[in-house]
Amino acid sequence: MLQIGTQAPEFNLFASPNQKVSLSDLRGRKVIIAFYPADWSPICGDQLSLYNEMLSYFRKENAELIGISVDSKWCHFAFSQDRKLHFPLLSDFEPKGSLAKAYEVYDADEGECKRVLYILDESGIVRWSYLSPIGINPGADGILTALEEMRNNKTN
């Protein structure tokens, strides 16, 4: 896991079949990154559907959400349509898992990302992280609390 206070590694990954997203595109906003093992798996589906309901709460805190797994862009596209997701899923597909490795969240035995949440501040610095046991959906209470603390620290 990346240490709190470090600069998060840049990325430029497919978010849809013909569009890429870079971390630097998101400067000026907080970024919630949800690394997750796999599209279509039951726990990941529940976790992402939950976050999909929370986008308005995240936006109130000037935070964007992105999901990242090693699935391909077409797999993400189908999954995203099926679950009506309104946030981008990025494909850490080629070379497989290279971003997850840079963020120190790759599970080489499974060939998947671990279930990890990062929150970056407006300058791309890691401010909060959480490693969830692989079989447990971490919910969103930790994210909301962390975003509120970031807001309070700034105003104090």
């Binding site: 529940d46 709460y57 971490p138 919910g139 969103a140 209470d141 909301l144």
Partner: peptide, 12 residues
């Protein structure tokens, strides 16, 4: 209810 649920750790 929804928001309180989130705060309480409801995850599905």
């Amino acid at each position: 209810d929804f928001e309180n649920g989130i705060r309480s750790g409801v995850n599905g």
